[in-house]
Amino acid sequence: MEHWLELARGPLFAFTFLVMGLGLARHVLLQVHGLVTRKGQRLRQAPWRRIASSTLSWAVPVGHLDRSTLVMTTASFLFHIGAVVVPVFLAAHVALWSGFLGVSLPALGEGAADLLTALTIVCVLVLVAYRLMTPRARALTRASDYGVLGLVLVPFLSGFLAAHPTLNPLPWSWMMLLHILSAELLLLAIPFTKLAHVVLFPFDRLSEVHWQLRPGAGDRVAAALYGEEAHV
């Protein structure tokens, strides 16, 4: 078992981390390339200040709370904090990072880590319930959306159980293996699912840039479809 754990923690982790890194880098490069080569000069004409302030307004979305979205927005906000802080700053992970990347990060205290993990799990469950129970969300949700929430839930849940022997129904090493493998599956999934928004969200927010349409494109599209003498 130890052997399997070592394998999962070591080479397998390095591999999935690399795939995730490359996959996300590809997204970013494609976006930057698309914007720079296509938009060029027009990038400068975009209302950058407005884009920046609206993006920042979502960092702590208190300005965006209202009754109909209160539960969902709060759950989603807290979830995102947990989803970033726990994987990076949990003591056991900090040790992992220093072994891998040679960086030493401050570690979360045990109590804080427990609380945050539990909170994250609860938030995922709330988000699942929200999708199941709100007609508007149910109409939008596809199986893959539940799939993604599941992918996120398992590593948090298994990690929490592994750290709490009294609650853990499985032998520790089994639970740990489940934790590591599910976390790696999650890493692998990030670039290939909507989780890619971890790097793409700033690009999603660039619609004002995309309103800077390409001069001459309209004529070229019309000519390609209907010939040079195209009529309205």
Binding site: G34, R136, A137, L206
Partner: peptide, 12 residues
């Protein structure tokens, strides 16, 4: 590309 990859479809 960006919308397709990250569309959250959250209903918010």
């Amino acid at each position: 590309d960006s919308y397709c990859a990250s569309s959250a479809k959250c209903g918010r």
